[in-house]
């Protein structure tokens, strides 16, 4: 029986604020899963703590709502033990780039075959609107007593220098673009990052729907707003590494694009490189049976509870008499 969008929904009451950008992200995710017809029981959706963290509860797939900042290692452990799982990680900008920044960096260099979606709303939504690590210097969102005193982290540039092999940006309101981007990320072989520009109508009164739409920038010729977001693909930009020699030039080109912000914000795939070995491949080089007989599938005892791990050789190595 073909899987339908409804098969990926739960009956859990959704308590996000009206107009929250998370709704678009959730819908795009469910559409992507349905398009790819991924069996819900093969999918594991992990999330951190924050408004975004509730995402798995709304998706009919195995859902794991973890700790603030720690979602990546939780997900890594599961993927490592059972590589057959389709692991999708949802994180907040505070979650992944503040408290969890060490994991953001180190997950990149492992290049596990997973998808990581950051809900970038510029604020700590669930704790009532403090500045998140992506909020730019000097910006004062609604709940801040004073303008932001720190410079913002750019997750795209950070990902480029920490080993992510698929790096894209999308927008919570453009559900088709986001859905397609998530699908690309899922299909990508390696660690994929999708940064989603997300509105938080309750606390981020700067990067609003109207701001992204460019409603403050009316084109005198057409009398219409000039949107801030533009699609990389439409400019002829190609971030895909087609042969290993392109790795550095494409990284540099992507970095240049990643620095664009303000009046022109690119969305789409900045960089993709499938020539880098995945963690799974690296493990398989050491453990030939890993793909077919991963940790989660290994039999450890016979029916009487007798261990089946052959440690006799190891004990023999320690032998001194007899």
């Amino acid at each position: 029986m073909a899987l339908k969008l409804a098969d990926y929904r739960t009956h859990v009451f959704n308590d996000w604020c009206p107009g929250c950008g998370n709704f678009g992200i959730l819908a795009s995710l469910q559409m992507a899963l349905a398009d790819l017809e991924l069996q819900p029981s093969r999918v594991a959706i992990f999330s951190g703590i924050g408004c975004h963290g509730k995402t798995p509860h709304f998706v009919n797939a195995y859902g794991i709502h973890t700790l603030h900042g720690r979602v990546l290692p939780f997900a890594t452990g599961a993927k490592l033990a059972n590589p057959e799982l389709e692991v999708i990680v949802h994180g907040g900008d505070g979650d992944g780039l503040g408290i969890g920044a060490a994991h953001f960096v180190n997950t990149g260099r492992r290049n596990m075959d997973m998808t990581y979606i950051i809900h970038d709303n510029g604020v700590y939504g669930l704790t009532k609107g403090q500045a998140s690590p992506t909020l730019k210097l000097g910006v004062k969102t609604k709940a801040l007593p004073k303008p932001n005193i720190n410079e913002g982290i750019n997750p795209v540039t950070l990902a480029l220098v920490t080993g992510y092999t698929f790096i894209a940006r999308s927008y919570c309101y453009d559900v088709v673009h986001l859905k397609e981007t998530i699908k690309k990320a899922i299909k990508h072989k390696g660690m994929a990052l999708v940064v989603v520009q997300q509105w938080c109508p309750t606390y981020n009164d700067i990067n609003t729907k109207e701001w992204y739409n460019g409603e403050d920038r009316i084109d005198p010729a057409t009398g219409k707003p000039v949107p801030r977001l533009y699609r990389l693909e439409e400019t002829g930009y190609d971030g895909i590494v087609h042969n290993p020699d392109e790795t550095i030039p494409k990284t540099l080109a992507a970095l240049a694009k990643a620095y664009e912000w303000g009046d022109r914000i690119p969305i789409g795939v900045f960089y993709q490189n499938e020539f880098v070995s995945t963690y799974q491949e690296r493990i398989s080089q050491r453990i030939a049976d890993y793909p077919g007989y991963p940790p989660a599938k290994q039999v450890i005892a016979d029916e009487h509870g007798k261990p089946v791990t052959g440690i006799r050789k190891l004990l023999d190595e320690l032998k001194v008499t007899g």
Binding site: T66, P73, G77, A78, A81, L85, N106, A296
Partner: peptide, 22 residues
């Protein structure tokens, strides 16, 4: 080998969810 002990415990825990002894 993880980036810190927070990753160590959470990674082992994530693995355990799949039924493996970790």
């Amino acid at each position: 080998q993880t980036e810190d002990e927070i990753a160590a415990i959470t990674m082992a825990t994530g693995a355990a969810l799949t039924g493996v002894r970790s």
